[in-house]
Design a protein around this nucleic acid. Structure first.
Lengths: 194, 194
DNA sequence: ACAAAAGTGTTCCATATACACCCATGT
DNA sequence: ACATGGGTGTATATGGAACACTTTTGT
């Protein structure tokens, strides 16, 4: 019985939620896109394996990472019994190798990776209401419009600007800096996560 | 690398949340209490393994069951690399072998099972707000006072009777039956989960 | 009659929602 | 001057929290 980790790495590109896929070079599913992942080392924690695989396959170093679910259907891998511990991760910018796809338009995936990806997307949506997970997709300093855009990309719907700003401010989870971002139009104040 | 499942089985006894433990008959941790669980079969799904282990070690047949988290610290089992997929389960009554302990007063546990148990308790508390998970700890027909008692046992705090009943009724998740439970005092109306 | 649990409404506060205009800047 | 995104307030609806008394039954 073997154990793997697979990671659903999200980022925002062009105001849309994307995830990273790698093209498989070997059988099974050779040539298909798959989630980055692979076998867990004999003396390696699951978290460490997920971090290592992200680094090896995508070059990404420091991201928010959280265990998602463990998929163990006996038939999920044609090579035999492979149980995978799925993670999801959030990358602030776009630093990586590999290929990004909008979550609304994924190619066919290897194994049960489509199910894993959908599960991760759902979890991300749910977490957004309760936590500060949105900040993980932004650089250290960001404008409130950027933060709103992240939320809209994850939820897939538009939000009211005034209500959004009030909620964020009243939660006390950001603090304004004294810097302003040149936007080409009216400058926007930069905020920092508290 | 081997994979096990462990199950945190909850029930309510004497108005308190309890969980089931079994005494280990073999090394390591011989004589200590542990969560019911064991190795996953080569051709068995994770859910099936959890259900089987519950049946084998506790006699419990039909319970609510949900995957919790996968614990994979390389040092968590002194025998070598053992990754465990933890589940939690909810049993309506008290049908089983094994020994029940109030969650507030657990004995020392084998492996990292204390961490697993605490994690399960926390998850149960969180889920209570959002889902109908409380019904899984009751028989098919129950009084609203019984349902409130379940919620209080899980949350570890008392709730206001009127507010509780209004919230449950307005959510539309129960429907009254025409039966009444003899309580020794004023009879209580029985409800059913919708 | 008394003890014990069942049952029932209203007020108040906090949070969510709906909604429109002015401002600062670059071209 | 105009186009673009930044920034701001109020009114309403909804959900949660606090709070006390009457009813029915068994002893």
């Amino acid at each position: 019985m073997t154990v793997t980790v697979d990671v659903v790495l999200f980022t925002i590109r062009e105001r849309k939620l994307h995830l990273l896929l790698v093209k498989r070079a070997v059988k099974p599913f050779e040539g298909r896109y798959a989630l980055p992942g692979g076998f867990v080392g004999e003396d390696e924690s699951l978290d460490a394996a997920a971090i290592r695989k992200l680094r090896e396959e995508t070059g990404v170093e420091r991201v928010y990472l959280e265990q998602l679910y463990t998929f163990g259907d006996p038939k999920r891998d044609p090579r035999g019994r492979v149980i995978t511990v799925a993670y999801y991760a959030l990358a602030p910018t776009d630093p990586s190798d590999g290929t990004w796809f909008p979550v609304t338009d994924l190619p066919p995936l290897a194994f049960d990776h489509r199910k894993v990806a959908d599960y991760a997307h759902q979890r991300l949506r749910n977490k957004l209401d309760w936590t500060n997970v949105g900040f993980e997709l932004l650089p250290a300093k960001f404008t409130l419009s950027e933060l709103q855009m992240v939320h809209e990309a994850i939820l897939g719907e538009e939000l009211d600007k005034r209500n959004f700003r009030r909620k964020i401010i009243q939660r006390g989870i950001v603090k304004p800096t004294k810097e302003w971002q040149e936007t080409g139009r009216k400058p926007a104040q930069l905020y920092r996560f508290k």
